[in-house]
């Protein structure tokens, strides 16, 4: 039986199905995310009329002096959704892949250009950009079905290294998050006081603007012995992320710990990292294309 764990080298060949599976998962996640957040995105688009002075462009939108009209913002969002459907199905991938990735970049940059950058979406956008520049529709795609004369592609380096690059992006993001804590607060961040203060600060400001804070976070503040181990584990997860480059079971172990880290952030702070918690951010860490086959085998084995 093939291993679920992928080797870590950039020059390791992989089947075309690996990038195809990542295309379906990552683009599918982004598409559903945009649909779910559509009411919020429409609210943000309307800010151009209601409070144009709040526009503070980030990322590629820094070239703009003023917000675009709500009609333009909503039109770009709708076109991005259309490109997303094509990208998930692998239709006209050379066009739909880059169009969807660029569209998501623009839509989310625009939403982040009103005074608050949301750090839950960075990995998603970078992963989409990598997939858009890769041959992610050479399998499991409508492009493939309309050209059945083409021979099925064999394993190749070009199907392996973009997934490894996606892994590298995850590793760098976690290390930067850990390094930001060390730089801003020193190694003392691991002592737990900074985390406890942060949980209290975040919960209180949410309550003062009429939102709900996490009851578990408030309960944790009554038992503050919990924060030193939580802070130490958080910092270790982030700074130790490069161990995934060793591959094998170490890689999988880090993914499991990182997933629990995000679960902890959700439970204690009420901050949802959906891309990570649904596992899509970590799909590039494994031979994700083997999962459907494994599920089928298990169904056959268990009558």
């Amino acid at each position: 039986m093939n291993s679920l764990l992928t080797p870590g080298g950039l020059s390791t060949p992989a089947p075309a199905e690996r990038l195809a599976a990542l295309r379906i998962l990552v683009c599918g996640f982004a598409l559903v995310y945009l649909v779910v957040r559509l009411p919020h995105l429409i609210d943000v688009a309307r800010l151009a009329d209601d409070a144009p002075h709040r526009f503070s462009p980030v990322g590629p939108l820094r070239v703009l002096d003023t917000a675009v009209t709500p009609t333009v913002a909503i039109l770009v969002t709708v076109l991005t959704l259309v490109a997303g459907v094509a990208a998930v199905t692998g239709m006209w991938w050379r066009l739909s892949g880059p169009a969807f990735a660029l569209g998501v970049l623009l839509v989310l940059s625009y939403r982040n250009s009103w005074g608050q950058i949301f750090h839950t979406e960075n990995l998603l956008v970078v992963h989409l950009l990598i997939l858009a520049a890769s041959p992610a529709a050479d399998a499991w795609s409508l492009d493939r079905r309309v050209r059945p004369d083409r021979p099925p592609p064999g394993p190749a380096i070009r199907y392996g290294w973009p997934a490894q690059l996606m892994v590298m992006v995850v590793v760098v993001a976690y290390v930067l998050a850990g390094w930001a804590k060390i730089r801003a607060s020193g190694i003392g961040w691991a002592g737990g006081d900074a985390l406890a203060n942060l949980v209290a600060h975040d919960a209180l400001r949410k309550e003062l603007v009429g939102d709900r804070s996490s009851p578990l976070g408030v309960a944790a503040l009554r038992h503050d012995w919990i924060f030193p181990p939580l802070a130490t584990i958080s910092l270790l997860v982030e700074l130790a992320a490069p161990i995934v480059l060793l591959g094998g079971r170490v890689r999988l172990a880090w993914v499991v710990v990182a997933w629990f880290f995000h679960l902890g952030v959700l439970l204690i702070m009420g901050i949802l990292f959906p891309y990570q918690l649904l596992g899509v951010a970590f799909a590039c860490f494994i031979a994700v294309e083997t999962i459907p086959r494994r599920v089928r085998r298990r169904r056959i084995a268990v009558p």
Binding site: G59, S109, L176, A177, A180, W189, A194, N197
Partner: peptide, 29 residues
């Protein structure tokens, strides 16, 4: 983006400052 002084957060390239600073026990909202 992390090499600047101070680092400049952006999107999608971020310095991930969200949980980094110890805000102390007193909060102003």
């Amino acid at each position: 983006p992390t090499l600047g002084d101070p680092p400049r957060d952006g999107f999608p390239l971020s310095t991930y400052p969200m949980f980094a600073v110890d805000r102390g026990p007193v909060t102003r909202v």
